[in-house]
Design a protein around this nucleic acid. Sequence first.
DNA 1: GTTACATGTAATAATATACGTTACAGGAAA
DNA 2: TTTCCTGTAACGTATATTATTACATGTAAC
Lengths: 144, 144
Amino acid sequence: MSISSRFSVGIHILSLLEINKEGTNSSQFIANSVNTNPVVIRKIMGMLKKAGLVTVNPGIAGATPSRSLAEITLFDVYKAVEAVNENELFSIHENPNPDCLVGKSLQGAIEPIFNMAQLALEKVLQGITIKDVVDSLKSGNKVC
Amino acid sequence: MSISSRFSVGIHILSLLEINKEGTNSSQFIANSVNTNPVVIRKIMGMLKKAGLVTVNPGIAGATPSRSLAEITLFDVYKAVEAVNENELFSIHENPNPDCLVGKSLQGAIEPIFNMAQLALEKVLQGITIKDVVDSLKSGNKVC
DNA sequence: GTTACATGTAATAATATACGTTACAGGAAA
DNA sequence: TTTCCTGTAACGTATATTATTACATGTAAC
């Protein structure tokens, strides 16, 4: 199955905070751009807030990035919205037969491989910032 | 969410074909090692067969690898069991508002990034063979 | 050819998660 | 006090996974 679209929505939110920084980025406004329900935005915004990426206050319309968008990587967003948990991108079948060599040892053999693959993916995300994405949006040029 | 455990089961199956090559690898036998239902094994075995990785015949007990395990990479298994579809590891929210710059252009901006990240992950899987896993099982040494 | 046992596959249930939606509590400011 | 916002719980729907039952079909020994 796929990695939750919370991730792409999170990127959308942060990008919009920049593109519409002159305006007020209420959950309703953002939801209109993302094309979803404002509650979905508030829930994801809450995760971004918890991760220290955005500043939002109850009762006050709008949100702002908590630090420069050049200092927020896609990996930060990915962790914030729990797109994938630590070492859980791949799932491994549970309780294989311990009386069988394969059943007993497979998990230990493939876990490091899976972790390495996951890390390779995450390293790509660490190399790209929200600023890169926003620049790409403005210019029409691809980030990569 | 996580990548289907069909992937780890597929690796389990192929490893077991080697470890138990003297014996008969019926779906019942394999299911006993994986600790699941034989039908689950037959379904995954069917995908491995369709991908040309194993040879199985209706009515005849057992399965064998179709080529050397040193020539079957984890990526081959990953594709065979449809762990992740082409460029679909990440999902992107659909139908964003085209009247908004972010809504209109975000997908085009992040898709190449997502594809790059997915490719980085897949490249790791391409570098490891079932033989590597089996060697690790036998020796107790990690593949990586 | 019949019996025993295998694979192939459809159908179904149980479970988990994502996403959307309604409802409402509580904060802020005119 | 009214209005509009955020925060959050609760619920429904849709979808994917895994397990399971049931049965059609193939193979080979007897």
